[in-house]
Design a protein around this nucleic acid. Sequence first.
DNA 1: GGGCCGATTAGG
DNA 2: CTAATCGGCCCG
Length: 197
Amino acid sequence: MSPDRARLARSFFTRDPVTCARDLIGCTLGFGETSGIVVETEAYAAEDDPACHTWVRPSAREFVARHPAGTAYVYLNYGMHWLFNLLVKGSGPGGRDGFVLVRALEPAGGIPLMNARRGGGVTKPSALCNGPAKLTKALGIDGRHHGADPFSDEGWVLGGPEGTVATTTSVRIGISRGREFPWRFLLKDSPCVSVKA
DNA sequence: GGGCCGATTAGG
DNA sequence: CTAATCGGCCCG
């Protein structure tokens, strides 16, 4: 990504994680030969959010402390699924640190490759990246990218939305604590989300 | 070292 | 509905 584009992208992640998660809907995310429109995200706050890894993991708190805004936070869940987050550093006046979990994309580029990585049996493009672990598998993101800076490392793309974006808000999915926070964001009426609101 | 949990998914 | 499967955490 070009230096000015990278600067813009990085500054995107220096606001509150909830704002970041909402504003990421409609943006273009690309890695390598594959890309798509972000249609589903969740926000996690480093403080006062029992669902965030920082709540119980010293290593997550250290990650927040040691890395700049926009750094990839990739971790293995259930022993088999890589999940992709971006580090948000919005602490300061009225802001917080935290993460944005990228949960689903509307595939745009590299659809045959996505399908191959998913095992080759996905007939509908809308089902290629309609979940956080499906997304990482389709894009080829895994533990090697933990700690990477997507906006200075080669191969990554982040572009702003084209036109107005209508979003839907709901509570977060799959967590046992902090269920009450309405920090999940969806592109309105998108067929590419994991679970409809 | 052992035990437990989990931001999920595919399959029955 | 459940099995799959393992890093990070805690305890000792």
